[in-house]
């Protein structure tokens, strides 16, 4: 089975790997690049734990082939904090106890960041529907939704 050489940009850094065309972008991130922050919870696009951005679009990396990333820009949880400075969403997730086991957290943060970039002032309903593809089994979502709303307010420069 011949492998394909892939050159892609992950969180701003150019990287290369050899991918079997059957391997997903998630497999490649985790097993070839050692970026295990993106998680596999289902492998069928139903849980969102593997959420990344691909050329700025939010996707499940388990539903993208590694070879499809060639020449594209990939954004993962490892790139959400910039230069060691946490993104307001990350701070608010800790502050609001919006995580318990933390396994869904990377995917939710990547998804929530994508939401706030296109909608800086989402309603609770908009947050809930945007995140409907990110399963969390620990929190009942209450504190997650609050953390996202509070981070949005923070980013807008409003007091919570």
């Amino acid at each position: 089975m011949s492998k394909i050489h892939v050159t892609t940009t992950v969180n701003g850094d150019e990287v290369e790997f050899l991918a079997d065309p059957r391997e997903t972008l998630l497999d490649c991130l985790r097993d070839k690049l050692g970026m295990t922050g993106s998680k596999e919870g289902c492998g069928t696009g139903d849980c969102g734990a593997c959420s990344v951005t691909l050329d700025g679009t939010l996707v499940c990396s388990c539903l993208v082939l590694g070879v499809e990333a060639d020449g594209k820009q990939v954004g993962t949880i490892e790139g959400v904090a910039e230069g060691g400075v946490l993104h307001p969403l990350q701070k608010k997730f800790i502050e609001h106890a919006a995580l318990q086991c933390g396994f869904c957290t990377p995917g939710i943060l990547v998804a929530a960041k994508a939401l706030l970039e296109q909608n800086p002032n989402p309603t609770e309903t908009e947050v809930r529907y945007w995140l409907a593809g990110n399963l969390c089994r620990c929190t009942g979502y209450d504190k997650i939704v609050r953390a996202v709303m509070d981070a949005a307010a923070d980013l807008r420069g409003e007091a919570a």
Partner: peptide, 23 residues
């Protein structure tokens, strides 16, 4: 009181290592 959890930073940055994360 409600301080930040000590493992919070690792879990919001993707650094925390779960079952499948080690080789």
């Amino acid at each position: 009181t409600r301080p930040d959890r000590p493992d919070g930073l690792d879990k919001v940055t993707g650094r925390a290592r779960y079952g499948a994360d080690i080789s």
